[in-house]
Write a protein that binds this DNA or RNA. Structure first.
Lengths: 333, 333
DNA sequence: CCGACATCTGGGAGCGCTCCCACACTTGTC
DNA sequence: GACAAGTGTGGGAGCGCTCCCAGATGTCGG
């Protein structure tokens, strides 16, 4: 907890002016080699670290990017999708001089998070796992540039979004189950306040309709493992029992698998499963799953924010590719 | 992205001085009711939010607390222990006017995280999941007050630590297995670069020694689900096979359970298991587990940091109680 | 009726930077 | 040899706050 030297002290030691030190610190080109060397030496000698607050105040930027996740802590931590996205974001950001600020709160009752953003806590925000009810998001978008991971339910013209084609991906997943000869196909959806859930259900319904079939059940699993288990319990209690499940996330599928096992149902013989995300969970549980490039999505989100802050306008809508990864829970035909 | 009003503009509208507005914003007492009302009105009218950077610069504090987690993102997200601790910290902090800054990095190659802290990014840091090799922690502790969740391997006099008695807790866990009549007891440990792992193994050994027994195996599961599975695989390959496992975390136990099931071994009949953490995972998997108050630990860590910053010196070492929660994986005698 | 004290208020100074302009000094050009 | 066009450098101003001191006003007791 040594006293922190100021730029002025570094300048004095290096025998140059404040400005020159600032140029060195900020990597400006027009500094003579001698001055550069002297300043660098002074910096290490004094163990100088520029004051963030002063820098922010003068330059009007914080060099911080907020990742807003409107979920409670438990959910945030449990979900491999979010984990991968965060990993992607961190990865991309570690090449830049921005730092990541995780802002996790299912809602923002006292407005602390919103206030933090509005007070100039971050230069921009990435928003993932956005629910229709998250009104504080709008207040955030008013004060800072924003990029969405996953389309918000109500898109405004100015919104910048990175997403996958959930409808098409879900359709393909269900078509795989159909190709396997399954006819009583049910789905476990995510929360309907999120567009991903709505879209995947839409793809599910469309595929069945194309085949002239009715859904064998739709249950909300709320994107959690327990929710997936509960939904599976409801679905297999039906008569006739579904012979296939399209589950909107690996995590919910894991919960469902447990329930099927307890019920003595074999996967895929009795019930075939296609899940979504292709997270490490899918590998571990041998789940056929729709791969969406989660880490890439994170990287892309981060890259877009950087572009945005650099004055380059990113594309309003980016659609990333998905791919059905076939494993044991719904094997190849 | 409306222009942000300054304190000066608020003052002008309210017909008072900058200072009075500052007093209102910071909750100072000596402001007349009329002035208070006028200022509050002006603040809402202009939608004023004080500039964080300016405030930090002038007051020399950031009102941010860093949570340093020296793990990679995947591990950070997967572990229910960390999830609960973070939840506890957020909870406690949400009553204060501090915000939480998650600093997650298994190491800090370019020193960005360290630099952030040293640049005055946070007022203090909470460090959890500390490994012996994390040298950047020391640099952080040099520039900012620090509180440890879980004893670091090398404790310095000035360190403030919140922990549980891992040795005693592990001992009790193993004694439960002994009381069940198990005699070939093995353990799956966490990473040996962490004191929790060393301590729990010590408790394991001590309990066996008290009973005049030898460990039936010790395997490092690295506190991950896959690590736990791999460790279990190694342990059950031994001859004679262990009839009980003390696993140093619920997450590793989950991995082990899967392996046991695949091997056709029944729990608890063939292999009894006592795990550690008593996270939601333990409930879901019906694991007997040592409860440690994770959320409370988080709350306590946060409270201590707040105390520290308020000039109140917290106790150097706080030991939280543990309790063995008996479930199906190692039922009551 | 005046000093002693509490209560409220205003404004100067300064936090540690960045940004911009001005000023050397060099180099090249016709 | 005068002028234009670079280079590198220094310092003033200012970012939007907080902190502190001084002043204004009110209150009370002797």
């Amino acid at each position: 907890m040594a006293a922190r030297p100021t730029i002025e002290e570094v300048a004095a030691l290096a025998g140059v002016s404040r400005s020159t030190v600032s140029r060195v610190v900020n990597g400006s080109s027009s500094v003579s080699p001698e001055a550069l060397a002297a300043v660098q030496q002074a910096i290490t000698a004094l163990n100088y670290a520029p004051n963030r607050a002063a820098r922010s105040l003068a330059s009007r930027q914080t060099h911080a990017i907020g990742l807003v996740v409107p979920e409670d802590t438990t959910r945030f931590f449990g979900d491999p999708f979010l984990a991968s996205v965060v990993a992607g974001i961190s990865d991309r950001l570690s090449d830049s001089d921005y730092i990541l600020n995780l802002l996790i709160a299912s809602d923002d009752p006292d407005g602390k998070m919103t206030r933090f953003v509005r007070n100039g806590g971050v230069d921009a925000a990435i928003i993932v796992s956005h629910h229709a009810s998250d009104s504080f998001i709008e207040r955030i978008a008013e004060s800072v540039p924003v990029v969405f991971g996953g389309r918000p339910l109500r898109v405004r013209d100015s919104d910048i979004v990175v997403d996958v084609d959930n409808v098409a991906a879900a359709r393909e997943a269900v078509q795989h189950l159909l190709a396997l000869g399954r006819r009583r196909i049910a789905t476990i959806t995510g929360s309907m306040s999120m567009s991903v859930s709505v879209d995947r259900r839409e793809g599910f319904r469309a595929a069945l309709e194309d085949a002239g079939l009715q859904p064998a059940g739709e249950a909300d699993g709320d994107f959690s493992e327990q929710g997936g288990a509960a939904a599976a319990r409801r679905l297999i209690a039906q008569d006739p029992r579904p012979d296939a499940l399209f589950v909107a996330s690996d995590l919910m599928a894991r919960g469902a698998l447990e329930v099927l096992r307890e019920a003595g149902l074999r996967v895929p013989d009795d019930v075939a499963i296609v899940a979504f995300d292709d997270s490490p969970l899918a590998v571990a549980a041998d789940l056929t799953s729709v791969r969406q490039p989660m880490a890439e999505q994170g990287e892309m989100l981060a890259g877009m924010v950087i572009d945005l802050l650099a004055g380059r306008a990113p594309a309003a809508l980016t659609i990333l590719p998905t791919e059905l990864i076939v494993r044991g829970s719904a094997p190849a035909v």
